[in-house]
Amino acid sequence: MSSAEILIGEGAALLSLQDGVAHLELNRPESANGLDIPTLEALYAALMKCHGDRRVRVVLLTGKGANFCAGGDVKTFKSKGDGLSEYIRQATLHLQVAINAMVHLDAPVIAAVQGYAAGGGGMGLVCAADLVIAAESSNYMVGATRVAMAPDAGLSVTLPRLIGARKAAELLLMNTALNAQEALDLGLVNRIVADDALLEEAKAYAGKMAKNAPLALAATKRLLWTASGLGIDAAMPEEARTVAELCKSEDVMEGLSAVIERRKPEFKGK
């Protein structure tokens, strides 16, 4: 295993790279990693650095401290007074840009969640991730209507897509909080691990995924995000086109050879 290379070593979003896994860490533990405009700008910059680095095969998204992300920075919001509407307009635009960057990133995004994932920020990031590993004491809540706001970060689309329309409506309208087991039962998260093993387990999970063929990971991620909106009649031709295009890559021949020769493949992303 190689040592981690620091790509962004200071600020509100830290980024390192090790063996194909980019570790993106929200770095405002004193505010429960609440999202203000500078933090959203830092998050987007880190995602774009991942997008531009062909070595990145998987992104592991975490939050420093006791909580993954408690949503928007409510203290900042309250301080804006009469200027809150304009600040929120700008903040939600930055949040939308960051969420879009996650969804359209070639590398799958794995979120590792401890403490609270709340608000449009925390839940938005969870729902925009491709896979989620939950600490056993983690909790999940949208919370927008609790402060007389509406969901943002694409939650009106991503949450029903993940857990179904009726349950999503309940969470969004009632501000229902979920514990880790409830989130797992609904399909919001993929697996639960012990609190003190979260980062270790998440890194191992990401590292295992990073050994897969990066072109295939990217294509599969794209199909998963687009297929539900296409319908099966349109999705199947798109799947066929994608598989045929991947068969032009060296990785496909390497994968086939590895199966025949009963060995582990060595994918190069080309």
Rank of each mutant, 00 (worst) to 15 (best):
K49G: 13
V189K: 00
F267Q: 08
A32K: 06
N212K: 12
T92F: 12
V58E: 05
R166Q: 13
Q181W: 12
E239N: 14
E136A: 11
D73N: 10
A117E: 10
G52Y: 14
K270L: 12
N27V: 01
G11M: 00
E200T: 06
V109K: 04
S3L: 08
L198W: 01
G229M: 15
E170R: 12
V132K: 05
A219I: 01
A258S: 03
K221Y: 09
R55A: 11
M1E: 12
A107F: 02
K264Y: 08
N139H: 12
S257C: 08
F68N: 04
E86C: 13
H51C: 06
Q18S: 07
G124Q: 03
S249E: 10
L199S: 08
V243F: 15
R166S: 09
I133F: 03
K203D: 10
G269A: 04
P237I: 11
M48W: 09
A197N: 14
N67E: 14
P38V: 06
L131W: 14
D152E: 14
L199N: 09
L84C: 02
G255A: 12
A168S: 10
A144G: 09
G187M: 03
N190S: 13
A240M: 08
D251T: 01
A213F: 08
D73H: 06
R241N: 11
R89P: 14
N33W: 00
A101E: 12
L7W: 02
K75L: 09
A234H: 15
G72E: 06
V189T: 03
L61S: 00
K167T: 03
A70N: 04
A66S: 05
E250V: 15
C50H: 09
G115F: 01
I99V: 02
A45V: 10
A32S: 07
R89C: 13
K78H: 14
E41R: 07
F267W: 06
L184M: 10
D195W: 05
S31Q: 10
V189H: 00
T76L: 06
A144E: 09
Q18T: 15
H51K: 13
L215Q: 09
A240K: 15
A216F: 14
F68C: 11
S79W: 07
I88G: 07
R262W: 15
T145I: 07
E266S: 04
L131C: 11
D53R: 11
S3V: 11
E170C: 13
E200Q: 02
A216R: 09
L105I: 07
E41T: 05
E201M: 04
S31H: 06
C127V: 07
A210G: 10
V189Q: 00
A235L: 01
H104T: 15
E25P: 12
A194L: 06
V252C: 05
A129R: 05
A107N: 01
P265F: 05
Q90G: 10
K167M: 06
R28G: 03
A22I: 07
S156Q: 12
V132D: 03
A177P: 14
A204Q: 12
V103Q: 11
A134H: 00
H51R: 13
P214R: 02
V58M: 08
L105R: 07
G9R: 07
K80Q: 11
L24T: 03
A165R: 13
L186R: 13
A210S: 14
E250P: 15
G164E: 00
L95H: 01
A216N: 14
V132M: 08
A206H: 00
K211V: 03
